[in-house]
Design a binder for these strands. Structure first.
Length: 827
RNA sequence: GCGGAAGUGGCGGAAUUGGUAGACGCGCAAGCCUCAGGAGUUUGUGGUCCUUGUGGCCUUGGGGGUUCGAGUCCCCCCUUCCGCACCA
């Protein structure tokens, strides 16, 4: 009677054995080569979802494989535990964010264990605990003392009804997510990190990231947005003030027929202050600023502006041009002011047409002459016309010459501009790491002294959901004394963006218990950098740039010698159902718990990997899960039906048999599969094809076994192949394989068994199929010994009756030969 | 608008270096087993045509090209998805 495949019992059994053996604990060991496999840690939202299952299963298979290959593998996990959902839950249902978060973590931890993941739980980090976030504060203070953290005014979304700051996603559609009132913009003091200091290095560091997908590097590159150009100052007529502009096309400056500044530009108020239309202008400016902040698609917005009536002088031509305030000029980019060249910029062209501003042509396409009246802006490069001494130069020559001339004349310089902006980390929220700053009336803003860290987030606060952060209304937190003069002082009540937490957690895993520094440098020297980082591509820009930025700061303050934390990044695709991402609102969520109950962890792991290669999206299909389950079941039944045979004592040697053809075939297949599975896991990360090749091996094995009773001599090979198969499958379905392995009489767990080695000689087919083509079309094929020379195979091909019939009496022009593959006869 | 990725049977996907397209799995069909089956098992399964063969033709979004040979390389176009977006 065949024993049932009781996966619930088996999985619980092996999870306990692994835990009792502490099989997943790792320590630094200089004798072994380390491998640090990291997956993006989860936000403890309550339950794990299929995206987690996929992400962590990919990492788990690679980790287990590397362990079997003899590496010292660090595979940690933790919790991105601060953030808004916890606070929202508090506001809505009165549960304390800490309670909510810790309960979620407990449940999700249980779920992850239930999946059988190879995690060293001794290194678990939890960002909402003071043990962790005190180092956020410490790092912040290091940055503050180096001038890398600073405070400045910035616009935030503000709900006047709730009297609170809103995140962008809470202000969707320009309406407050809670009370639906109209969102306003408010200018508030906020903390920033000077990531722009590292813009160039974040860009040039891409050269070290050889194992990142090209498109991810490109996304980051666009985000950093480096532009080469020039800054030029235009004096404002009748004043001693200037407008500075940035341009990437200084070669077109002779065609600058006006200057346009952003409504938000500091000069915009001054320039209209003595205008008789001041009030109308004022209203227009306010409306434009608001639109710029809130409109999603600004390109759709019609270009409009107001003429300030003031003039500025084009320093190249000496001509006076009007100064406009225009809604298409953004304060965030460049200087917030542009030299407008209608002839060579379509936006300026549209604007000039609307307000009848002159359009001048100063660049013509190479080999063409001036076209008279322009129909639209010519934005390409060409040769300069109507440009004084620079006329006749190419655009490229002129850009250098003009930048040089501007610099020599003192009204400009060649320059480089980045789109990347400093990172605002202030959040007017409770559930985050407090920013360790104290404000004293006398001494100003001071960092909390290191000895006073951590600044503990107080537990007892009120969650009204209105009038700013709960911390502001907690006097016991706010009131403090000045660390310098001892006088009355007030704490910063803003907390940190949770991206701050996730920018360095991978360092913390190296020594998560360390109490005197964020991490032990020696431990980080051993484990870092992360050898493989796996996670959703939605973090390709922000998280991965911030983390790279932090690593470079750590290097610059002497905590590490690493330049890049993640030399290898593997983005993993989404799990979708019915054409869209699984989400509660769509109602298309498949709960991993349900799958675990129905099929078990091994089936779920196998299915999620088998469906698709890691980078691709997975469309969930319940039938496929059954297929993966069936595969395990078939192996289970097969082993149990022949249990006497498979559990036979290893030492019982059978006489070496003569090698039959099918015997040879199976042996070859076995060695090929070892090679393929290894390559698929560590070279291509195509775990789906690794699994399919194991399935193929099992199919071959079963076929061979139909003759098991007849061909006594194949038995050793069959048993050996089965053992290899279980080893190859074990990273994918670890509980199942350990159970079978034990049944086959082994005492060790598979994690401690080494990965099988293939013999290249045996992996090579002794007979190959030679394809015969005529004019590139398949016409015949035959088997032949490996390595036969062209002449033999060509003769054999021409002997074939089919081939002879097709050729008839036509003349053979030539014959193409590919060793061990094909003979192509061209007639 | 700019940038990127992708398009292969009814479905998920395979084809790693230009060399047998459709591996593996799902689904479907038929047989076996069964009182029964939404279980198990065996076989078949891209389309099409006929003379049913170890057959012919067609087939990797569409159209051209390079090559003895193209899913793979080049050019043009279409569709879908993603990122950025008045970036000066």
């Amino acid at each position: 009677m065949t024993e049932n495949y009781d996966f619930q019992r088996i999985e619980a059994k092996w999870q306990k054995i692994w835990e009792d053996k502490e099989a997943f604990r790792v320590f630094e060991d200089s004798k072994k080569t380390k491998f640090y496999c990291l997956e993006m840690y989860p936000y403890p939202s309550g339950r794990i979802h299929m995206g987690h299952v996929r992400n962590y299963t990919i990492g788990d298979v690679i980790s287990r494989y590397k362990v079997m290959k003899g590496f010292n593998v660090l595979h940690p996990i933790g919790w991105d535990a601060f953030g808004m959902p916890a606070e929202n839950a508090a506001i809505k249902s009165g549960v304390h964010p800490q309670k909510w978060t810790m309960e979620n973590i407990a449940h999700m931890k249980h779920q992850l264990k239930r999946m059988g993941f190879y995690y060293d739980w001794g290194r678990e980090v939890n960002t909402c605990l003071p043990e962790y976030y005190r180092w956020n504060q410490w790092i912040f203070l290091q940055m503050y003392s180096k001038g890398l953290a600073y405070k400045k005014k910035s616009w935030v979304n503000w709900c006047p009804q709730c009297q609170t700051v809103l995140a962008n996603e809470q202000a969707a559609g320009n309406r407050c997510w809670r009370c639906d009132s109209e969102v306003k913009q408010k200018d508030m003091e906020q903390w920033f990190l000077k990531i722009t200091d590292y813009a160039e290095e974040l860009l040039s560091g891409h050269d070290l990231l050889k194992k990142w997908p090209e498109h991810v590097l490109l996304m980051q590159k666009n985000w950093i947005g480096k532009s080469k150009g020039a800054h030029v100052t235009f004096p404002i007529s009748g004043t001693d003030q200037f407008i500075e502009v940035f341009t990437t096309r200084v070669d077109t400056i002779y065609g600058a027929t006006f200057v346009a500044i952003s409504p938000e530009h500091p000069l915009s108020q001054k320039l209209i202050s003595d205008s008789d239309k001041k009030e109308r202008f004022q209203t227009w400016i306010e409306r434009s600023i608001k639109k710029q902040k809130l409109e999603k698609d600004l390109t759709e917005e019609e270009k409009e502006g107001i003429d300030t009536g003031k003039k500025a002088t084009n320093p190249f031509t000496g001509a006076e041009v009007p100064i406009w305030i225009a809604n298409y000029v953004l304060m965030e980019y460049g200087t917030g002011a542009v030299m407008a060249v209608p002839g060579h910029d379509q936006r300026d062209f549209d604007f000039a047409k609307k307000y009848s501003i002159p359009i001048q042509e100063v660049v013509v396409p190479e080999g063409k002459s001036s076209s008279g009246e322009l129909e639209e802006a010519f934005e390409g490069y060409g040769r300069l016309v109507n440009s004084g001494d620079f006329t006749g130069m190419t655009s490229k020559e002129a850009m250098d010459a003009m930048a040089q001339y501007a610099e020599d004349s003192g009204f400009g310089r060649g320059s480089i501009l980045y789109r990347l902006r400093d990172w605002g980390i202030s959040r007017q929220r409770y559930w985050g790491a407090p920013i360790p700053i104290i404000y004293c009336e006398k001494c100003g803003a001071l960092g909390v002294p290191e000895k006073d860290l951590p600044v503990i987030l107080p537990r007892d606060v009120e969650f009204l959901g209105v009038e700013g952060s709960p911390l502001e209304h907690t006097p016991s937190f706010v009131k403090t004394s000045c660390p310098q003069c001892g006088g009355q002082a007030r704490r910063e009540t803003d907390t940190m963006d949770t991206f701050f937490d996730s920018s360095w957690y991978y360092f913390r895993y190296c020594s998560s218990q360390e109490e005197t520094r964020p991490f032990q440098s020696s431990a980080a020297e051993y484990w870092m950098p992360v050898d493989l980082y796996i996670g959703g591509v939605e973090h390709a820009i922000l998280h991965l740039i911030y983390a790279r930025f932090f690593c470079k700061i750590f290097r610059d303050i002497g905590l590490t010698t690493i330049d890049e934390p993640f030399p290898h990044y593997l983005p993993q695709g989404m799990v979708t159902k019915d054409g869209s991402a699984m989400s509660k609102s769509k109602g298309n969520v498949v709960d991993p718990d349900k799958m675990l109950e129905q099929f078990g962890a091994d089936t779920l792991r196998l299915f999620i990997l088998f469906s698709s290669p890691p980078e691709k999206e997975i469309a969930w299909n319940e039938k496929g899960v059954e297929g993966s389950h069936r595969f395990l079941y078939r192996i289970w039944t097969f082993i149990h039906e022949n249990l006497d045979f498979f559990s036979r004592d290893k030492n019982q040697v059978l006489e070496a048999p003569p090698e039959s053809e099918s015997h040879l075939h199976l042996k070859t297949k076995m060695h090929q599969t070892i090679k393929k599975v290894g390559d698929d896991i560590e070279k291509r990360y195509h775990l789906n094809t690794a699994i399919s090749s194991i399935m193929e091996l099992f199919n071959s094995l079963k076929k061979e076994c139909e003759s098991l009773k007849i061909h006594h001599e194949d038995r050793d090979l069959v048993k050996n192949t089965m053992e290899i198969l279980v080893q190859l499958l074990s990273p994918f379905a670890p509980h199942f394989c350990d159970e079978i392995w034990e049944k086959m009489g082994h005492k060790n767990i598979l994690l401690h068994a080494s990965w099988p080695v293939f013999d290249p000689e045996l992996a090579r087919e002794e007979t190959v199929t030679i394809v015969v083509q005529i004019n590139g079309k398949l016409r015949d094929k035959f088997d032949a010994g490996r390595g036969l020379p062209k002449e033999d195979l060509e003769r054999k091909a021409l002997e074939s009756e089919r081939i002879r019939n097709i050729i008839g009496d036509r003349k053979i022009r030539k014959v193409i030969f590919v060793q061990d593959k094909l003979v192509n006869i061209v007639i």
